[in-house]
Write a protein that binds this DNA or RNA. Sequence first.
RNA 1: CGCGGGGUAGAGCAGCUUGGAAGCUCGUCAGGCUCAUAACCUGAAGGUCGGCGGUUCAAAUCCGCCCCCCGCAA
Length: 312
Amino acid sequence: MLKDIKTIFFGTPDFAVPTLNMLLKETNIIAVITQPDKKVGRKQIILPSPIKKVTVKNNIKILQPQKIKDNKDFINQIKDLNPDIIIVAAYGKIIPKEILDLPKYGCINIHASLLPKYRGASPIQTAIFNGEKETGITIMVMNEKMDEGDIIAQISEKIYNYDTSESLHNRLSKIGAKFLLKILPDYINKKITPRPQDNKLATYTKIIQKEDGKINWQQDANKILRQINAFTPWPSAYTFIGQKRFKIIQAEAINQNPKRQEGTTFIYENKIAIACQNSILLIKKWQPEGKKEILTTDYLFGNKNIINKIAI
RNA sequence: CGCGGGGUAGAGCAGCUUGGAAGCUCGUCAGGCUCAUAACCUGAAGGUCGGCGGUUCAAAUCCGCCCCCCGCAA
């Protein structure tokens, strides 16, 4: 039944891969649209997106337009393919109305939050940063505005205190694929009526900048810990000690007066700790510039002089 | 040719500038002290100093090429 549905998939990063895999298995994928290959890594080698890799491996038609808006060629190609449905997961570009209106079942988007909360570019990171206890997946019918489409279905997912954006991202990407498969037949058979979002309750998330990872030690360790978890693995929460950058990989907040100036490094339980405002950030694992991730316990064996410095 | 840090014992590091016996903090093993110990004392094992080549009486150290890891930038 789903196998008869001609589907076009729009997506780019890892988050979209489980959904694409599911669609490849369950529906009739006639084309995949992803962002153009980009330069990645130290050597600036041009690499395909994760979605492109999967698509090529499965011998599916792939399109990578530089821009979509006013791109007549591209829009005509989509028209000619005559899809029954378009499914979008983290594509990364705005899709114009001309395309949204094409398929008879419309354009469906998977978004990693419980809309109308956390619309925009960084729902997972922002939910963790704000200390939310739960978030989820929303499947909606797209309109021209960003993440404002009518909601088809939602599923919530708990955020654990040990969650990082990486771990939560991995769970949500799988949940999203599974959940889409579950609701898709009912949606197509019109057993679900999409309901509008309450725009008054909407909140927005920004594109994360590298600078957002810089730690300000003049604040509570619990807040810094949320920053660390929210920005792992990218761009990472970091600080400078001397001239060197240290990425904080894993830490724990301790509600105890550090009795030191904010930013001061010291030893606590054989690990490196840094004084925060009325609290202590106990660093379990970090990554010094030019080095691999390392337990601070191990780091201390050869770098005792790291203590009693000021992190900035 | 984007900029930069690094590869030395199981872990983390020093030694390289100015070539001359392989060292430090831990861990491991054995023994000692102790009511006891993750503490302390004594001893031991464990290294092709990333690889190949060159210079030299002599190379972790100087020179050349290569491999690998990482930070910035994008």
